[in-house]
Amino acid sequence: MEKAPAPSPALALALIVAGIVNRVGTDVQRERIIPALVSGGSFACLGYSEPDAGSDLASITTRAVRDGDHWVINGAKMWTTLAHEADWVLLLTRTDPDVPKHKGLTTFILPLDTPGITVKPVHTMSTERTNATFYDDVRVSDEWRLGAENGGWGVLTVGLAFERGVVGDTSHGVPLLRQFREWAEATGAIAEPLVRERMARAAIDNEVAKLLAQRSAWIAASGGLPGVEGSVSKLFAAPAFQKAAHWFQQAAGPAGLRAFHEAGAAADGWIDHASRSAPVLTIRGGTTEINRNNVAERGLGFPKAR
């Protein structure tokens, strides 16, 4: 039996979607969606990536065609994590194929029980289950459109800023350090100067990651959009967690390879889990390379490289 997804990614996703709906949604959408998401009463997932569109997200091909006051959606999405648990999917679609690719996109927030949506599991090395989702003649009312028609790229910009900077991938290092510390104290490894030094470095990285994320949150709370700052947060925090996870697993030796609840597993399997869930952090929510492009072009003012 697969280990159930930990609540934190679900909450993070819920907060991201709640943040977007709060910024760009209608009053009806705000009232219906935000309270349930913020309280953990319902979950949401992100329908951005496709089999052939990830970093080049503006080239997605899932199509939404207007039919009176309704839309008909056809296409497929990848990495729709939590789609099998969630009530809502934030869906990025193409509504005008005849304009430059960034200008013909529209976002919808759909109930996942809408007829025509199929969810299929995709299993990953981190034991986290993600999904592929399929949309076959999904017919929805225009009230589920989120933001302006053909204004989807703007909605996405809001979402990615929240995802990278405010709630995304910045806080895993704190529990990891705590879990490793408990193991190191129980085994006596904490007496080793090298172990202590690595723990101290992880603690410093956690502090910096926290401050960078707080800065992004402060910008968002002050009415700004932490586009560059969010990328900076993720560029720092994700590799820092990978470094810590890798090093703690090395320090734990064979015990760091044992899975959850196995006898002799370091930190009851959390060390193994951290090192298996670390690789995806520099990929999801905008890869490290895409975030570097963003910081270089929009933060430092370099010419566009693509």
């Binding site: 800065r215 570097r292 370099f302």
Partner: peptide
């Protein structure tokens, strides 16, 4: 072209922003 238009050059700089900003915040 300016060397700053090459991704390999840009990415080295981009990684420094978080280190410098993070140090200042700390």
């Amino acid at each position: 072209r300016p060397i700053g238009s090459f991704q390999a050059v840009q990415h080295g700089f981009a990684d420094l922003v978080g280190l410098v900003d993070g140090s200042r915040l700390l």
